[in-house]
Design a protein around this nucleic acid. Structure first.
Lengths: 123, 123
DNA sequence: ACAATATTGTCAGATGGCTAACAAAAAAGC
DNA sequence: GCTTTTTTGTTAGCCATCTGACAATATTGT
């Protein structure tokens, strides 16, 4: 992803923010934190970059003034349309491989992840 | 790993440097770059941290003055002995799982990685 | 209603990763 | 032998991530 995105001066997480805004419309920053599985502070920094680049706007909510709504700007939408389709990456990596083997791999990793998370919580 | 190492103020890559020095003895910095699969600049920064902490020494080579030999200090060896065994992490993640399933998962990921690397090289 | 608590975003400072550019030293070529 | 190239490490600057502390704002509890 880095390699594909570099010419556009976009990092992968920046790309993911744009992806969310393009597919789900304007979103509260706090909801993006959950969607991207990232810390509040991390997202704050990333949004900061996107705002400085003029690709995303932060609109304070009228009822809850803590929250901010994120919206793609016209420039953001323009850039988004120029971006190449990242699905090729998935194809390059997995096309033609045995589907059940892939599914198995995913299960193995998910199980390991869950176990480690439980372990960290307990300790 | 982060969670286990945090009480000792060690990052995972710092740990890995100590691991190498503990298991393979003093090592040239350039060889560590290959062992850790990391950029020269990245390792340089990490070594910088370990040197500041007094856990590792950088000794310029007598014959080739560009190269630097890395050696654990007494303080580094002392800390290393205190560190918990990280094998528990492997156990927590994978113990009791089907070995062939794990081997399959590894194969899937290795293949995907190789394909992506080839793709990046070509493009 | 007011005090205590929880949520949301930001800032500061750290790690770890990258690239690009540089300096010093060694090796290769001519 | 001297020039050019390669190797080695560092520095600077960027992105992404984390934790911890903070301010502002809501919510809850009494």
């Amino acid at each position: 992803m880095e390699a594909v995105l570099r010419p556009y001066e976009l990092g992968t997480t920046q790309w993911y923010v744009l992806y969310q805004l393009a597919h789900c419309g304007p979103t509260m920053q706090r909801d993006l934190v959950k969607a991207l599985q990232v810390e509040r502070a991390t997202l704050s920094a990333i949004i900061g970059v996107l705002v400085r680049k003029g690709l995303v706007e932060q609109v304070p909510d009228r009822v809850d003034q803590r929250q901010k709504l994120l919206r793609m700007t016209a420039a953001g939408a323009r850039l988004w349309k120029e971006l190449p389709d990242l699905a090729v990456i998935h194809d390059v990596a997995f096309k033609g491989m045995d589907d059940t083997a892939i599914a198995n791999a995913i299960r193995v990793l998910q199980t390991a992840t869950e176990r480690l998370e439980k372990f960290i919580d307990r300790s």
